[in-house]
Design a protein around this nucleic acid. Structure first.
Lengths: 266, 266
DNA sequence: CCCTATATTTAGGCG
DNA sequence: CGCCTAATTATAGGG
């Protein structure tokens, strides 16, 4: 398929041809249907979507995305792993004057069914392409952990990291360090805001470590970029510490490749 | 705009016209660009996306979605709330033989920049439409909570609900009930599987309630659809209970409206 | 606006 | 495959 054939606009005038063409492109190319529709999803939840103009994307792996005119999340969707996607055209009225394009699929793994009914079709297109998905991400929690191992001084002066991913009976603690006074410090690391769940978790770990270390003095610390007052005082009350690290300020930007002329924007 | 004008395919031959047309449709209609591109996102995280064929959707509210050929999640995206989206065309080579379409936007609230560079454009389309988004969902946790309030007998015979959303020093407990022996039961409700975090949370709450109720006997219970063995035994060890509710079986299906002919699929 | 909690979370990693 | 956890989580709801 050369470049001029990357995009195909399907004719919506002939019903039989349309259904057969859609089937041809399923699991090969992206099928896109723009029209007015209703939808229904049943499975993990039941949802019913009233009339509206939407864009349906059907990816080659079977992913279904039904997008409205706002927001990041689709109105309805289905993950890959469903059975074959079926199309059919049914009469909307007794006199066969108008038609409805229906799509249906069922995903046995999660017992989910998803169906859409278009009563107006504005456009049906097919997109052919290749994408190796070469996505590099820098700055996630694992990267932050790496950074602290090589830059322990941002935690405290004279700080040293002894180990990471320390196993406890309850799971793993991100980091074990030692402060300038040779006191062990167990650290739970969060990229963003500290949630009550994080606080509970650290408190649990503290209880477990207490039993392990017996009378040895030690510290437990949550590192994150922000915390609610309520959580902060709760932590303090339970002998846990909070250290704020605005990682967006300290974490290095990934080196820019000469990504075409993109960087000229900056 | 009548139906025949819902979809517009922009000509990609004239650079100046293209940029001006794109600007015209921004924040009015959905702009869709299908082409070969690279992308870069900086802000909460830094990401660099290598060459590939993708579909870019720009919604009227400023939402940006860059989709590849598989999966539910976009490869890159940006939430609404960014500044104006800018387009420009730059020369890819010294002899001006080929061009690159660049898109850039910055979201001050989260200090995020997002840029995309298309070196091949297969298709640029614009979609006009209206969507009131009439989405009804049944079966989420709030519905399950409502259901238990009116059907407490599914928890235990002779059970009664006394209160909901009980405040603690850190967070809320979903339900407070009383069993057939007049023992108070504090309940944490989950739609799906119980996670270790849920278990910690309930245990914490139990400790807090212990101090409040002093010598009064009480029960604490996690309700969910499944649990790992490890969590189950941990719960038991800490005098917390687990009650399994396969809500998908007990929760009523939402009544089907005559959604065109959709239901004929079932 | 901050804070909290849910989600058809999705997706990845490990045992 | 189940379990666990991070995520540019997104998003809604409450104070």
């Amino acid at each position: 398929m050369n470049d001029s054939q990357r995009v195909l606009s399907l004719s919506i005038s002939s019903n039989d041809v349309l259904i057969s063409e859609l089937s041809d492109h399923l699991n090969k190319n992206i099928i896109q249907i723009f029209g007015r529709c209703t939808a229904r999803f049943d499975g993990r939840i039941n949802s019913e979507l009233g009339d509206g103009d939407r864009i349906l994307l059907i990816k080659p792996d079977g992913t279904l995305l039904l997008h409205g005119f706002s927001g990041v999340k689709p109105l309805n969707w289905q993950k890959p792993g469903a059975g074959r996607i079926e199309f059919r055209i049914v009469s909307a009225t007794d006199d066969n004057a108008s038609w409805i394009l229906e799509m249906y699929t069922y995903r046995p793994k999660t017992k989910e069914s998803f169906s859409i009914a278009f009563d107006i079709l504005y456009n049906i297109s097919v997109f052919a392409g290749k994408d190796e998905v070469n996505l590099h991400i820098a700055g996630n929690e694992a990267d932050l952990q790496d950074y602290l191992v090589t830059h322990p001084e941002v935690i405290e002066e004279g700080f040293k990291i002894l180990d990471r991913e320390i196993e406890t009976p309850l799971g793993f603690i991100d980091l074990l360090g030692i402060d300038k006074d040779n006191i062990k410090v167990y650290i739970e690391l969060k990229k963003g805001s500290i949630t009550p769940a994080d606080v509970f978790q650290l408190q649990r770990y503290r209880n477990v470590i207490e039993k392990t270390l017996l009378n040895e003095h030690f510290r437990t610390m949550l590192i994150g970029s922000s915390i609610a007052d309520k959580s902060k005082s709760y932590l303090k009350k339970h002998h846990c510490e909070y250290k704020e690290l605005k990682w967006q300020e300290i974490f290095p930007t990934i080196p820019r490749t000469k990504a075409k002329s993109l960087n000229q924007f900056f």
